[in-house]
C-alpha cells in the first residue's frame, strides 16, 4: 500500500516534469517582470509560493505596483481566475470518491491550467498521491523559476530562455493531438476554441481583453458547441438514472 502510494506519487511527479520545465521559463519571466516593476525579490517569491498562477500573478503584481486598492486587486484576480472554478468543477468529477475534504482542499491549491489538463488526461479516477506528485514538480519549477528570474535576470542567454518557453506548448500539443486524432468531437472543440482565441488576438477591440477572459470565452464557447453537437452518453460506472434513490451519495 505504501509502496503503491509512493509509486503513484512518483508517476505524478514524472507526468508533471514537462509542466515543471515550462513553468521554469514562465516564472523566470514573471521574476524579471516583477523586479523591473520595482517589487523586491522576497515579494515576487512570496507571490509565487502563495498564488501559483501565471496570468493572475502578473496582473496582481502590476496592480500592487500601480498602487491599486485591495478591492481592485480582488475583482481582477476573480475575473482572471474564473476559469479555475470551471476546471475545479470538471476535476471534481474525476476525483477518487473516497478522497477526504481536507485532501480535496489541499490539492485544490495546485489546480493550475496545465496540472488540470494533464490530470484529466489520465484514465480512471484521480488519487491523492498521484495528484500530489503531479502538483509537486510544477510547483517547485514555478517557485525556483521565480527566484532565478528575480535574482539572476539576464544571466541566461535569450535563445535558451525563449526555447524553454516552447516546451509547454509542445506538451499541450502532445495532449490535444492524439485525442483529436481519435475523436472528431475533440478535434472540432479544439479547432473552434483555437479559432475564437485567434479572433480575440487579432481584432483591434477584442484584443484588449485579458488572457484570462479570452481563455474563458473561447473554451466555454467551444465546449458548449461540442456538448450540443456531440453529447457523451456514456455507459457510466454508476447507474445515473437508477430508480432507487438515496443509495448514491
Amino acid at each position: 500500500m505504501t509502496q503503491s502510494k509512493r509509486s503513484l506519487f512518483l508517476r505524478g511527479a514524472r507526468d508533471g516534469l514537462p509542466i515543471c520545465f515550462g513553468y521554469l521559463s514562465v516564472a523566470f519571466a514573471y521574476g524579471i517582470h516583477s523586479i523591473e516593476g520595482g517589487l523586491p525579490v522576497w515579494a515576487a517569491l512570496t507571490a509565487s509560493l502563495t498564488n501559483f498562477t501565471s496570468a493572475g500573478q502578473v496582473a496582481g503584481t502590476d496592480l500592487i505596483l500601480a498602487g491599486a486598492t485591495l478591492f481592485e486587486i480582488a475583482v481582477t484576480l476573480f475575473l482572471i481566475n474564473l476559469r479555475y472554478a470551471l476546471m475545479s468543477l470538471s476535476l471534481s468529477q474525476k476525483l477518487d470518491p473516497g478522497m477526504s475534504v481536507l485532501e480535496r482542499a489541499a490539492l485544490a491549491f495546485g489546480n493550475t491550467d496545465e496540472v488540470f489538463a494533464v490530470a484529466m488526461r489520465r484514465p480512471g479516477v484521480l488519487t491523492t498521491p498521484y495528484l500530489a506528485g503531479l502538483i509537486f514538480t510544477p510547483y517547485v519549477g514555478w517557485c525556483l523559476g521565480t527566484l532565478f528570474g528575480a535574482t539572476a535576470a539576464g544571466l541566461m542567454p535569450a535563445v535558451v530562455r525563449s526555447a524553454l518557453g516552447l516546451a509547454i506548448y509542445g506538451m499541450f500539443l502532445a495532449i490535444i493531438l492524439p485525442e483529436a486524432r481519435a475523436n472528431r468531437a475533440v478535434a472540432l472543440v479544439a479547432l473552434v476554441s483555437a479559432a475564437v482565441s485567434c479572433l480575440f488576438a487579432c481584432l483591434p477591440l477584442l484584443r484588449r481583453l485579458s488572457a484570462g477572459w479570452v481563455i474563458i470565452i473561447a473554451s466555454v464557447a467551444a465546449s458548449s458547441l461540442g456538448a450540443f453537437l456531440f453529447p457523451i452518453r456514456e455507459t457510466s460506472d454508476e447507474p445515473d438514472e437508477a430508480p432507487q434513490r438515496g443509495a448514491a451519495q
Binding site: S90, A117, Y169, I176, S197, V220, G226, E234
Partner: peptide, 18 residues
C-alpha cells in the same frame, strides 16, 4: 458532463493558439 469533458481540450487549444 459533456461540456466538462471537452473543457480541458478547449482550454489548452485557446492557450496554445496563437
Amino acid at each position: 458532463r459533456s461540456f466538462l469533458a471537452y473543457l480541458p481540450y478547449a482550454v489548452l487549444a485557446a492557450m496554445t493558439v496563437p
